[in-house]
């Protein structure tokens, strides 16, 4: 299939073919990463601007590695906090980015929808590296790639996503990447951390809500635990982290309710002992480290599809 998207803002309107095209390209990138010299030329002469208005070492480093492996020049711009307080508006930053003339802007921002704002005001291709509660497309795609690798395919597989769904861009992007590949999703977690519409019969296609985690995990093919922010308790959404762990934490006993060998994933960083036990996080079922490795390959695939020249041969 011919790649036609200019930006990667959200995967909510992607076809199955588009998702598969990215996953197949990711496979080629995994091969590049396994070479003795991990370097390929398709982004030579291209500039990738990493604009992280919200700090995230992991995702930024992953994108940086992806861009450098494909021979791009990389520029880092970090701006912290909300634009209004700091006096520098996002609009100002975008004009600066535009003047600098990067080919790709990879952006992380605390406001849902901010990548749309930027994409409307710059000529560069924009990749959303996480916006507010809204989307984290590369995480969804890397989770799909990782799960496909572990399970062979996703058709009729049932994946559990447990935790703070309402505030989670990862959950939304996982749904958007996994459902078109044939998976069904069971969402679990406290009702206060679930979008109210999704609890009341309006969950997205391919997903259902099951408050009881044991029932959700029973016979499931995989589970993705979400990070629980400690401030949810202070916000009155949870009585205590202890109670959360007791009811929705991933323990060895719980994960054994799934099909034998069913994998466990987490987007990181993990709160071990809160949403996931250390034994599960580092146990035989855990794909957490493979997620990190695959993340670089998925980001390479997207950079390549957006602005790469069509050769992966080493120069």
């Amino acid at each position: 299939m011919r790649w036609s998207r200019r930006h990667i803002l959200d995967t909510d309107d992607w076809s199955t073919e588009e998702i598969e095209a990215v996953l197949d390209t990711t496979g080629a990138m995994v091969e590049v990463l396994s070479r003795p010299v991990r370097r390929a030329p398709p982004l030579r002469g291209r500039t990738v601007v990493l604009f992280f208005a919200e700090s995230s070492t992991r995702t930024r480093v992953s994108f940086e590695l992806a861009a450098r492996t494909l021979s791009a020049d990389v520029v880092n711009i970090s701006a912290s906090g909300s634009s209004v307080e700091k006096g520098e508006s996002l609009y100002d930053t975008v004009r600066t980015l535009q003047a600098l003339g990067g080919d790709v802007v990879v952006m992380r921002h605390s406001s849902s929808g901010a990548p749309y704002f930027v994409s409307e005001r710059t000529d560069a291709a924009v990749i959303n590296a996480g916006d507010g509660w809204h989307a984290h497309p590369t995480q969804g795609l890397l989770d799909a790639y990782t799960l496909r690798g572990a399970l062979g395919h996703l058709a009729k597989k049932r994946i559990v996503i447990v935790g703070d769904v309402v505030h989670s861009r990862v959950a939304r992007s996982d749904i958007n990447a996994l459902v078109p590949l044939g998976a069904t999703i069971t969402l679990s977690g406290p009702p206060t951390l679930m979008p109210s519409a999704w609890r009341c019969g309006q969950a997205p296609a391919g997903t259902t809500y099951e408050m009881d985690l044991d029932r959700a995990l029973d016979g499931a093919d995989a589970v993705i635990a979400l990070r629980l922010q400690k401030e949810r308790q202070e916000g009155g959404l949870l009585p205590s982290l202890r109670e959360y762990t007791r009811v929705w934490g991933l323990t060895e006993a719980r994960v054994s309710l799934m099909r034998p060998g069913a994998p466990v994933m987490h987007p990181g960083p993990m709160n071990e002992g809160v949403e996931i036990d250390a034994a599960v996080a580092h146990g035989a079922r855990s794909l957490v480290e493979r997620q990190v490795t695959n993340g670089v390959a998925v980001r390479m695939a997207l950079l390549y599809l957006l602005v790469g020249t069509p050769t992966l041969e080493a120069s």
Binding site: D12, S112, G113, D131, G132, W133, H134, A135, V166, R169, R172, P195, S196, A197, W198, Q202, P204
Partner: peptide, 12 residues
């Protein structure tokens, strides 16, 4: 707050 805010990840 509804199905659209849930999808867009905006507080309702």
């Amino acid at each position: 707050e509804g199905v659209v805010s849930a999808r867009l990840g905006l507080p309702g």
